[in-house]
Amino acid sequence: LAHGAGGKATRTLVDALFLEAFRNPRLEPLGDAAELEIGCSRLALTTDSFVVTPLFFPGGDIGHLAVNGTVNDLAVSGARPLYLTAGFILEEGLPVADLVRITESMRAAADAAGITIVTGDTKVVQRGKGDGCYVNTAGIGVVEHAWRLGMDGVRPGDAVIVSGPIGDHGVTIMLARGDLGIEAENLVSDTAPLHDVVDALLLATPGVRIMRDATRGGVATVLNEIARAANVAVVVDEDAVPVRQEVRGAAELLGIDPLYVACEGRFVAVVDAAEADRAIDVLRDHPLGAHAAVIGRVAADPAGLVLLKTGFGGTRICDVLVGDPLPRIC
């Protein structure tokens, strides 16, 4: 198994294996969370496993990610997060102090997100069989808004928005991992709970078609998912994509493209073009959306592709990468 970069290989694995094996109408949309109707309430359910090296990094740790990641999956599905489960797979030898730090940061993150951790599980594996600590969380939320979010709502002309500067988390992790001797005081993970800013957006802008948090594979991967699922083109203006100066510098040095780098506190929204300005105003009023920007628009052609308009007037195809990015220049 060589799948895991969050790119096309993972997608193929999910499509070919899991979707095939578990196929049912609720799974089919492959959204960040499944929407369920129980009695007369609409609930959203999601689960996510967290694997990160190092466990602690500038701006956060695996505990933060585990809470915020699930909170965000619920939030972008249009649900208010309510309860969380927590499962731990611990490697023998993990310092207890580390585990304490992780659980404390989980509690802090849960408090900040207004969510309660209601049940959990712990397993210990032999030394060498895990990277210190894996965390799985599952979350349940309630959908209180009347409208439906879905890929079928996306249409040509819609505006594509990101909620803030991209790439901070992934670049921070790579630097933390690499021992590269790069001074980057201002580089911290963007991990944050998005339920509040998403809520503000949804209240103000009924023209939101779909939202996705830009985690593994970055914004480029999310945009490709939208292009394929909605059978539209997404045309991105490269110069409009917000990237912080220090992130851009570090990404350049690392040779990576911020568009493909994971974020843990940013989301992409497709919005009715008529409401784009309003959406941006609302987002910018919130600290987590202070640098929100319209980065492009939805077009009819070429369906299924994401195009990047570069500063030089060219138009590059922005594909999901199949595996680790290997150079294509000969």
């Binding site: 040779g255 990576i256 150079p327 294509r328």
Partner: peptide, 10 residues
Amino acid sequence: PLPGGAAAIR
């Protein structure tokens, strides 16, 4: 090693 992938080519 090709440090930085495509960046090393540029």
